[in-house]
Write a protein that binds this DNA or RNA. Structure first.
Lengths: 341, 341
DNA sequence: TTGTAAGCGTTATCAA
DNA sequence: TTGATAACGCTTACAA
C-alpha cells in the first residue's frame, strides 16, 4: 500500500508560516488587508507546501462557487462551440469557471443537467432557447439562481435573453428567395419539438409564404435532426417528387451542406436547377461549392455579451436586460433566380 | 429586498420526516440499509421540500466528488466530441459527472486547466496525447490523481493510455498510397509542437518513405492548424508548384476536406489529377465527393473504454493497463492510382 | 434499523 | 493588522 498523501491545508500553511488560518485566508482573498512581511512569509509557506485551496471547503464557507454552468444542445455541432468559446473567455477574465454539459436536444436530459449544475453550486446558468417545462423555471426561481437564455431573443420569455430573432431572420431570407422568383419552396428543418430556434425559423418561412398570399399548407417541410446526412437524405426525398421545389431552405448550415453535396450526387446544378440556403454561417458555408447563401449569426458577440450579462446578474443580484442582436444575410452562390422553366 | 430562500438541507428533510440526518443520508446513499417505511417517509419529505444534496458539503464529508475531468484540445472539432460523448455516457452509467474544458491546443492552458480540475477535486483525469511537461506528471503523481491518456496509445508513456497507434496507422495508409504508384507525396499536417498525434502521423509517412528507399528530406510537409480553410490554402500552395505532388496526405479529415474542396475550385479532378487522404473518418468524409479515403478511428469505443478504465483506476486505486485499439483504412474515392503522365 | 456526534477545510464575524 | 471561533451541509464511525 502506498502511503496516502493528503493535500496540504490552510492549517498546514498557517502553522508553517507561524500565523493563524484567518491570516492565510486573507492573504489569498484580500491581500491588501495583510502587511507585506506577513504576506511574504505566508506566500513562501504556500509555495513550499505546494498548497492549493480546497474548492469544496471554500464553497461551503463562502457560499459562492465562481462557477457558471452552461447547457447546450450538443457538442457535436460547431455552432455552439464558437459562441461558448467567447462566453468562456469572458468568464475567465472575471475569474469565473465554466461548466458545460450537453443535453443531446433532450428536454429530460436538460432538466437533469440543470439540477446537477445547481446542486454543484453554479452561481448562474446559461441556457439555450426558451422552450422548456414551466416547472424548471419555477425551480430556478425558488432556488434563486440567475439564468440567462442565449441563441434566441424574446422580450417576453420567462428569462432574460441575449440573442437574435430567429423568425425575423428566416423571414427576411425567405423574402429574398421569393424576390428571386421562387414559388415552390421546401424547408428542411431541425426537429422543432422543444426547440424554439428551429420552430421560429420555420415560422419565419411560413410568415413570408403568407405575406405573399400563398397557402402555408402548400409549403413542404421535412423535420430531421441536425446532421449532414439527414440533410442529404431529406433533400433527395424532396427532389425526387414530380414537381420538386426550386428552392430548399435549410434550418442550418449543416443540413444545407448535406443538401448541397447530395445535389452534386444527383447531378443537379446549384443554383441553376435548385437553390439551397442555410443558417448560421459556419466555416463550412464559405468553403462549399457553390458557397452557401446563409444567415450570419454573431456567435462570438453573443457569447461575450451573455457572459457579461450573466456575471452582472450574479453579482448585482438583479435581473438583466435582454439584448437583441442582429443577423444579416450573407449572399453567396447557392441561391439564384428561379429557373423560369 | 426579496427574502432569501436558502435551499433545504438534510436537516430540514430529517425534521420533516421525523428521523435523523444520518437516516436521510442513508436513504440517499445506501437505501438498502433503511427499512421500506422509513425510506418512503423520507422520500416524500425530500420531494415536498424539493431537496437536492449540496454538492460541496458532500464532497467535504466523503472526500470524493464522483467527478471526472477531461481536457481536450478543442471543442470546435467534432473529432473529440464523439469520443467524449461515449466517455460521458459511460461515466454517467456509473454515477460520475464529466467536467470538460478545452486547452485550444495550448500547453500552458492545458496545465492551468489540469490544476483547476484538481483543485475542484476531480477524482480522475482524462488527457489527450502524451506530450506535456514532466512537472505536470509529477504534480499529478504528488496529488495522487489517477489520470489516463486517450487518442494515442503508447506502452511506455508516463501515464497509461487507451488509444491507437497514430504512427502505424498513417504508415499503413502511406504504404497503400505507394502501392498505387505514387512517388511524389506531400503532407498537410496539423501543428506537431506539443501534439504527439500529429507528430506520429507525420512520422508514419516518413517511415513509409524511408521503407521505400526514398529520401525523407524530399517529402514536402506543410504544418497548419486543423481548420478547413487552412487545409484548402495549404493544398493550393502545394499544387501551384512546378512539379506538384500526385498524392496529398492530410493529418485529419478536416484538413482533407479543405484540400478536396479547393481542388474543385482549382479545376483539379480527384483522384485523377491528384489523390487526397484524410484521417479520423468523421461524417464529412463520407459525404464529400469524391468521398474521402481515410483512417477509421474507433472514437466511441475509445471513449467508452477510457471511462471504464479510469473508473477502475479511481475506485481500485490501481494503475490501469493501457489498451491498444485498432484503426483501419476506409477506401473511398479520393485516393486512386498515380497518374502515369 | 436508527441515532449521536465528530469531523471535512474554508470564510467571516467579532475581539483583541 | 491579526487571532479565535462559529458556521457551512454532509458522511460515517460508533452506539443504542
Amino acid at each position: 500500500m502506498s502511503k496516502l498523501k493528503p493535500a496540504p491545508t490552510l492549517d498546514d500553511v498557517a502553522r508553517k508560516a507561524g500565523v493563524s488560518t484567518a491570516t492565510v485566508s486573507r492573504c489569498l482573498n484580500t491581500p491588501d488587508r495583510v502587511v507585506e512581511a506577513t504576506r511574504k512569509r505566508v506566500q513562501s509557506a504556500i509555495e513550499a507546501l505546494g498548497y492549493t485551496p480546497n474548492f469544496a471547503a471554500r464553497v461551503m464557507a463562502a457560499k459562492r462557487t465562481f462557477t457558471i454552468g452552461a447547457i447546450i444542445p450538443t457538442m457535436e455541432n460547431a455552432i455552439f462551440a464558437r459562441g461558448l468559446q467567447a462566453f468562456q473567455e469572458e468568464l475567465h477574465q472575471h475569474g469565473y469557471t465554466l461548466l458545460v454539459s450537453s443535453s443531446a436536444y433532450k428536454p429530460a436530459t436538460e432538466e437533469e443537467q440543470i439540477r446537477t449544475l445547481v446542486a454543484r453550486g453554479a452561481d448562474g446558468l446559461l441556457l439555450i432557447g426558451h422552450d422548456r417545462a414551466p416547472h424548471i423555471y419555477e425551480f430556478l426561481q425558488r432556488r434563486d439562481i440567475p439564468a440567462l437564455v442565449a441563441w434566441s431573443f424574446s422580450p417576453d420569455g420567462r428569462l432574460p435573453s441575449i440573442g437574435f430573432d430567429n423568425r425575423a431572420a428566416m423571414y427576411e431570407l425567405a423574402q429574398r428567395v421569393f424576390d428571386l422568383g421562387h414559388r415552390r419552396l421546401a424547408v428542411i428543418s431541425g426537429i422543432t419539438h422543444g426547440n424554439d430556434r428551429a420552430r421560429l425559423r420555420l415560422d419565419g418561412v411560413r410568415d413570408a409564404v403568407r405575406q405573399r398570399g400563398l397557402d402555408p399548407q402548400g409549403l413542404q417541410v421535412i423535420e430531421t435532426p441536425y446532421e449532414i446526412e439527414n440533410g442529404a437524405d431529406a433533400f433527395a426525398r424532396l427532389m425526387s417528387q414530380d414537381t420538386p421545389p426550386t428552392a430548399v431552405m435549410c434550418g442550418n448550415d449543416v443540413l444545407a451542406a448535406g443538401a448541397l453535396l447530395r445535389a452534386q450526387d444527383m447531378g443537379l446544378k446549384v443554383p441553376q436547377d435548385v437553390s439551397i440556403t442555410g443558417f448560421d454561417d459556419i466555416e463550412l458555408a464559405r468553403i462549399l461549392r457553390p458557397a452557401l447563401t446563409t444567415v450570419h449569426v454573431p456567435h462570438r458577440e453573443m457569447g461575450g455579451k451573455a457572459a457579461k450579462a450573466l456575471i452582472e446578474m450574479v453579482e448585482k443580484r438583479a435581473p438583466a436586460a435582454g439584448e437583441h442582436l442582429f443577423t444579416h444575410i450573407v449572399e453567396r452562390q447557392s441561391l439564384g433566380p428561379a429557373n423560369s422553366a
